[in-house]
Write a protein that binds this DNA or RNA. Structure first.
Lengths: 208, 208
DNA sequence: TATTTTTGATTGATCGATCAATCAACAAAA
DNA sequence: TTTTGTTGATTGATCGATCAATCAAAAATA
C-alpha cells in the first residue's frame, strides 16, 4: 500500500505516539519499539525517518513547543491591553491542549531531559525566554521594571509548580482529570495581588 | 581491610554517592557501577547491601526526605507563632542543605520517578502531605480554612516551581550557584500579600 | 495500453553494547 | 574456623542501531 508522501504522515504519527507513550509511562524510559508500535509502524521505520531515538525526542519537544507557541500567539492577538495579555498567557498555559495528562507528563520528562541534554536544554531555554519576555513586556506596562521581572518569575514558577503537582496528582488519584480552572484562578489571583501591591510606574519606576 | 560494622558506613557512603551521581547527571540514568565507584566500592557490594538498584533509589529518597523532615522539625520548634512556622518551612525548603545543586537535581529526578514507581510516589506523597498539613495548620490560624488550603497550594507550587527552575538555571549558567535568598523573598512576599488580602477568620471564616 | 524501470516505504533479522543481578571465591577479623 | 566484608567474573536480558530484502506505487518506455 505504499503511496508516496507517507513521510509527513509517519513523522506526525510517531511524534504523537511518542507523546502518548511518554505520557503513559511518565518518563523517557520508553523504547523506540514501543513508540513505533503505538504509531503502527516498525521500529526500523522510526529510525529511518528520524535518525535515532534522540532525534525522536527532540522532534517531539519541538512539536510540543510549537503547539504551545502557536496557542500563545493566537491568544495574545485577541488579548486587550497588557493585563489581558498576561491572562492570555496564563489561560493558554493551562488550556486543554497543554494540560492534557500525557502532555504534562511529557513536558516534565523533557524538563529532566534538559538536565543532561544540551539540545533539549536549548529548546526549553527558548520557551522559557519567550514566556519570560511576554510576561515582562506586559507587566512592564503596569508596574516598574524590577517589579515586572520579579512578578514574571513568580508567575513562571507558579505555572511550573502547578504543572509538576498536577502530574503527580493525576497519577495518585487514578488518572484524575486536570483542574485547569482552579490553577488559573490561583495564578490570576497572584498577579492581581502583586500588581495591587506595587506602585504605578511613573516615567521612572520608584523604589518599591 | 574488612573491619566489622562496615554496613552502616557503606550504606551511607553509597546513598551519598547516589545523590551526587544523580545530581551530576541530572537524572536517574546512572548505573549501579557508577554509584558504587563513586562510593569507593564495587557494584556487587552495592547489590549486597541494598538488594538492587530500585532499593538504592528508594533508600536515597528516604534519606533526602528524612533530612528535610529533620530540618523542618528543628525549624518549627524554634518558630514563633503560625506566621513564623510558615516562614520556617519556607526557609528550610530553600536552605543550603536542600538547595544544593545535586540535591535539587536528585529531587527533581525522583519526582519523575514517582510517575512510574508506586513506592516512590508513596514516599513523595508522605512528604507532600506533611508539607501541606504544616502549611494549612499554620495558615488556618491566620485565615479561613478555604483560604488556608488555597494559599498552601500556592506556596507548595511556588516552592516546586522555583526548584525546577533552579535546576535548569544552575546548569544553563555553568553550574551557577543557587540563589536561595531571592527565592525565599518571593515566596514570603506571596504569603504576605495573600494573607493581607483575606479577612481575619472569625469563629466561622466568611466567604472570601 | 501494456511492460519495464525506478524509487519510496517498510520490515524482520541481527549485531554490539550496556547493565542489573548473581555467584563463587578470597581476605581479614573474631 | 567461622563470620563478615568484598570483589571479579559471568550471565541473561534489553535495546538502539543497522542492513539486506520486500513490496507496491509511480514514472518511463515501448
Amino acid at each position: 500500500m505504499p503511496r508516496t508522501g507517507m513521510e509527513p504522515i509517519r513523522r506526525k504519527a510517531i511524534i504523537e505516539a511518542a507523546i502518548s507513550t511518554i505520557g503513559e509511562r511518565g518518563n523517557l524510559d520508553v523504547t523506540v519499539g514501543q513508540i513505533a508500535r503505538s504509531a503502527g509502524v516498525s521500529a526500523a521505520l522510526a529510525h529511518h525517518y528520524f535518525g535515532g531515538k534522540d532525534q525522536i525526542f527532540l522532534a517531539t519537544m519541538r512539536h510540543l513547543l510549537r503547539v504551545y507557541s502557536h496557542n500563545v500567539g493566537g491568544a495574545l492577538a485577541e488579548a486587550k491591553g497588557p493585563r489581558g495579555r498576561i491572562s492570555a498567557v496564563i489561560r493558554v498555559s493551562f488550556g486543554t491542549e497543554q494540560f492534557a495528562p500525557s502532555t504534562i507528563a511529557a513536558w516534565l520528562a523533557f524538563y529532566v531531559r534538559a538536565q543532561s541534554d544540551d539540545q533539549a536544554r536549548r529548546l526549553l531555554g527558548i520557551y522559557a525566554r519567550r514566556l519570560n519576555s511576554n510576561l515582562v513586556d506586559a507587566l512592564g506596562q503596569l508596574c516598574a521594571r524590577d517589579d515586572a521581572k520579579r512578578i514574571a518569575e513568580g508567575i513562571a514558577a507558579l505555572i511550573d509548580g502547578l504543572y509538576i503537582r498536577q502530574a503527580l496528582h493525576s497519577r495518585a488519584i487514578h488518572d484524575g482529570p486536570a483542574d485547569p480552572a482552579s490553577a488559573i484562578a490561583l495564578v490570576e489571583r497572584y498577579v492581581n495581588s502583586e500588581l495591587g501591591a506595587v506602585a504605578r510606574p511613573g516615567k521612572k519606576g520608584g523604589k518599591r
